[in-house]
Nucleic acid binder design. Structure first.
Lengths: 239, 239
DNA sequence: CGATCTGTTGACTGTTATCAACTCCGGTGG
DNA sequence: CCACCGGAGTTGATAACAGTCAACAGATCG
């Protein structure tokens, strides 16, 4: 168990939706945890598992993947500062697979810390609620996108959302961020075939809105990308 | 304001995910509320509204509809016993439109009732949490369906889910239930065009798994429908 | 240096959107 | 009573979009 500076991403994430006092930050700094590393496509949480701690993502990306082996649809993607399995504090059973997209560093935090947080800081508890609401809003937003947009819009929207969420925790400065996930991963998020994902990305490149090489994405024309994606970030509830 | 037997559907809904004591049921029976009627396609909650009470659905169906996108994608559907805007107890701002699918009866319940419920019954509070988790799981499940299934599977799945959720609150006995929503509504839920929705329903009829006439759906071959839908109801967390 | 994963391309097929026209039905007003 | 209207359901023709299969090129890694 250790405490300290590694939780700044979590604090950034909470502060992106609500104001916190220095007492609140102290509380977060004293969060007990144990650190673990995962390699690409490794399972952080397996389906059916019973969790008694939450994963706080410190570095890298993770995703919830449907258990059905045939296509492995991804239902959400998570960036540093996120706690993808926060809901296990209410019901410990894990119903899907939490997978690493590229190398990942995770801090495991006991459920008790989150359960007791309401008694220690009303503000932090409320910020956690807002994060949960933002996650649900993001799910609804993806539902709209999968239900009504074609592949180019889907891919563009994904890139926009990742960029904005990374910025909220102080990453993706200069519209450039690591993309250790594969084109097949993008396909599983956007609900398209890997071959079509490839063609869609080429289309984005041809339109000169982004570069994707050496496992890095660089957005070269943010307004154009936002336009293609019809991206409106209100649903993320960022201040 | 009134109290009483009208909340049996809500109690059924809670008891479908958790066990409640007779004290808990008393607590629910004393729930303060005011009843309102809505006609088909009327807005129960408008986008941007600030709620200080929740809607408990008593009769009929309601749905969350996306505000902006031209096609009005529906992101979730709700049946009697559901509280579609329970999340407004945490953050009162409504971010989408809650619309009636057919005639609807709603009980408006003050936020305070839900906020104070934890202090009065741990069990009821936990049951409410489980309902919220089931709603999110349903969203994720639809994400998988929209991302990886074709229209026949989507429509079949929708019918399966509605039937099971109605059964959980004592409706849809005999695999027959009212369907006041239009084929265009089904299209907006399944993320397909109204014309294609029509052809998909005809396909289901031709396969003799259901009848849909006089605003009523009758499932004539449940196992076949479940097979077409690849329906696995675990995610609804029903006992 | 071979094995494997990822990205890329072309050809073909299947699913779904779109447009337009038409029917059927329940209401509404003359 | 009937003419009319609008909404819902239905049908066919066509076009756009995306999936699948197969092959290969480039990267990465033991």
């Amino acid at each position: 168990m250790q405490t300290g500076f590694v939780f700044t991403k979590f604090a950034d994430h909470l502060m992106s939706v609500a104001e916190l006092s220095s007492d609140d930050l102290d509380l977060l700094a004293r969060m007990p945890s144990s650190i673990r590393n995962f390699s690409s496509h490794q399972e952080i949480r397996a389906c059916g598992e019973h969790a008694n701690e939450c994963c706080l993502l410190l570095q890298g990306y993770a995703c919830w993947k449907d258990t059905d082996h045939s296509n492995g649809q991804i239902t959400s993607i998570h960036v540093p500062g996120d706690v993808p399995d926060l809901y296990t504090t209410l019901s410990p059973r894990v119903e899907a697979r939490l997978c690493a997209l590229g190398p990942v560093v995770v801090a495991f935090v006991p459920h008790a810390f989150f359960r007791d947080i309401g008694a220690r800081s009303e503000r932090v508890a409320h910020a956690l609620s807002l994060l949960t609401l933002a996650d649900v809003a993001s799910l609804r937003n993806w539902l709209v996108i999968l239900g009504s947009c074609e592949s180019l819009t889907r891919a563009a929207h994904l890139i926009c959302e990742i960029a904005v969420r990374l910025r909220a925790v102080g990453l993706a400065r200069d519209n450039r961020f690591p993309s250790p996930f594969t084109q097949s991963d993008l396909a599983a998020i956007c609900g398209i075939s890997p071959v079509h994902a490839n063609r869609t990305i080429q289309d984005l490149r041809r339109k000169r809105v982004l570069q994707w090489q050496a496992r890095t994405i660089a957005i070269t024309d943010w307004p154009a990308l936002v336009g293609l994606a019809n991206f409106k970030p209100d649903y993320l509830r960022l201040r």
